[in-house]
């Protein structure tokens, strides 16, 4: 596997007043890797993810994303990443085609390029019949698949996925992961959070956040060995059970 580092953090910290949301987290993510970013509610995942996307300035520590500094080069970071969350991803009142064109346009792609690529994408997702339909009328699973494709439409180095499969049916959930594997094979790094522990198994490496710290980081196999657990679910339970920061 290629060992180019695309995300590198060193004691990255975010404080809100007295509250330390993320506490000196240090880790590297490699090119083309599927990196699972797990943690209990309120462990600091969202805060960390915002810093990595260049949406929030860290309080201290260092981090580079796709080779760019999170303090000074946030605009360049944004041009080199894709983002998709369960809550917001596409405009429900625009058609499939319009959404693709819009998001392609945001990233400054040429009109002709957008046209040819969106045809390809629509064909790949099997949405030929739905291209003129409003996104709001599509089933959730299709929306999520389309949203992911749009998030990587501009061929970013890294794509951040925030609970992309929440509430999606088991079949579509697997189709979604097929898309993730494809992207990963093309060299796109996947940074993903999820509540489904079986999905943690699909990641190359997994980090577990508890109370603002990264408490464990390794391949699923090694994590299970380390905690002498049968499943990732058990690993997570073992780690998160000790969390103090439950009410936040």
């Amino acid at each position: 596997m290629n060992r180019n580092i695309v995300i590198s953090t060193d004691k990255l910290t975010k404080r809100f007043g007295d509250f330390v949301a993320t506490n000196e987290i240090t880790f590297d993510v490699y090119e083309g890797e599927i990196f699972g970013f797990l943690g209990a509610n309120g462990a600091g995942k969202t805060t960390a993810m915002r810093m990595l996307c260049g949406l929030s300035t860290p309080s201290s520590g260092k981090a580079t994303i796709a080779g760019f500094d999170v303090y000074k080069e946030t605009e360049k970071i944004k041009a080199n990443i894709g983002y998709m969350s369960q809550k917001f991803s596409l405009y429900e009142d625009l058609t499939v085609q319009e959404n693709i064109r819009f998001f392609g346009g945001i990233y400054g792609k040429k009109k002709k390029k957008i046209k040819s690529k969106s045809d390809e994408l629509i064909q790949q997702l099997g949405l030929e019949k739905e291209r003129g339909k409003l996104v709001g009328s599509l089933p959730l699973g299709w929306k999520q698949k389309l949203a992911f494709s749009v998030a990587i439409f501009h061929e970013p180095k890294i794509v951040f996925l925030d609970e992309p499969t929440g509430g999606v049916d088991p079949v579509t959930r697997r189709q979604f992961w097929d898309l993730i594997y494809d992207a990963s094979d093309r060299g796109i790094t996947i940074f993903v959070t999820t509540h489904y522990m079986d999905e943690a198994e699909y990641c190359n490496r997994v980090s577990m956040m508890v109370d603002g710290y990264i408490k464990a980081l390794d391949t699923p196999t090694k994590l299970k060995q380390q905690f002498s657990a049968e499943t990732m679910d058990a690993v997570f339970f073992e780690l998160a059970r000790g969390a103090k920061r439950k009410a936040d």
């Binding site: 943690g39 209990a40 509610n41 609970e163 929440g166 509430g167 509540h195 522990m197 679910d233 997570f236 339970f237 998160a240 059970r241 969390a243």
Partner: peptide
């Protein structure tokens, strides 16, 4: 249990 972590779900 939607959007709630495994520990709370259990």
């Amino acid at each position: 249990t939607t959007g709630v972590d495994t520990v709370s779900r259990k």
